[in-house]
Amino acid sequence: MNGATNREIMICAIADLLRGSRNIAVGASSPIPAAGAMLLRALAEKEGERPVRISVLGSVRNNFFTNGSAELFDCAAQGRIDAFFLSGGQIDGQGNINLVGVGDYPQTKVRWPGSFGSAFLYYLVPKVILFREDHTPRIFVDKVDFISAPGTSEAETFRKGGPAALMTGKALFHFDKDKARFALQSVHPGHDLVEIEAATGFTFDHDENPPTTPSPDVQTLAMLRGRVVDELSETYPDFADQMRAAA
């Protein structure tokens, strides 16, 4: 079997970040997070752990909701969702995310789709994993132009959740809530600290020699390439084909 690709390493690292989660929700256009959640479900099943439930937006099979699109938010507000994924056109060093646009609101120079559920779920889901495969200084900025949802809130603001980690195509960061700051946790194979600093528009804490993001063992990789990619193809057929071709 060939060694793990960068995407496979990311998916396995996401599954690891999700450990302990029972109910995981995945938003639109998120094949890598969905694969991470599906891998955790498969691993939990194999290891005889508590079953993991996954709701993937846009999926019919991986969807445990029957009360329309409001139900995810109702569940999250009650603490029934343990983990969720968010992204951003811009993400800054304080964990603020911008899904609206670049420039002065409302007549932004560049307009992205909009905040979706972020301005709610970021506050309420205990473990939010930020995911953005592209890693450039235009995305990872010092300060976002529009705060769709803030990384942290004042002590008196009702907040049960927030960012736990940031996964990119180059590295994995941990979010320190008290410092409102990211710390580099590991660097994906083939990348290094100098490159990551140059590609990141905000400063972050790091070791002098940060560890490498671990590659999965043979059994985990086989599970990912078999069952997980098959499950993924219902919602993300093109992405699943890409995974198969690259493996």
Partner: peptide, 12 residues
């Protein structure tokens, strides 16, 4: 509704 406080969504 929960959430929203401190966001620019609310500010606008």
């Amino acid at each position: 509704i929960r959430g929203l406080i401190g966001s620019d969504v609310l500010r606008h």
